[in-house]
Amino acid sequence: MQNQTIARQVIESLPFSQALGMRLEEVGEGRAVLSMPWDARLVGDPHTGVIHGGAVSALMDTTAGTAVIARGDGTGTTATLDLRIDYMRPARSGQRLRCEAVCYHTTRTVAFIRATTQDEDAEAGPVATAVGAFTFERREEVS
């Protein structure tokens, strides 16, 4: 519960996340949902108004990091080791993106995540999916 509070407080205050307009929607045990509005400054393809892949990466990296921080058995700090993103289809111009990340396994030192990003057209399937590994520190239980 404590780490979920940290996640809530920290994530929206990160300067880069703020610059991209990210918003924390939900946080749970090892799970997070963040959203990012469409913005003309984030466009990668001027012909279609599609958001740049790099901005989608930033949303997914942030959401995945939040899911790791929100693990109750960790110290609430993390850094990305690697992140692989697969782009299924272009995000629709003008629509808000919503990314859900789950930290599905941890070792004493590594957290593994999966993430999916959708736009407002959920029936069209995901815009992008990601898998990654993050640094993880298990919290020492004080008994």
């Binding site: 880069f16 790099g54 990296d61 942030t62």
Partner: peptide, 8 residues
């Protein structure tokens, strides 16, 4: 630096 800024 934010990992997202670096990845971008």
């Amino acid at each position: 630096l934010h990992g997202g800024a670096t990845a971008s």
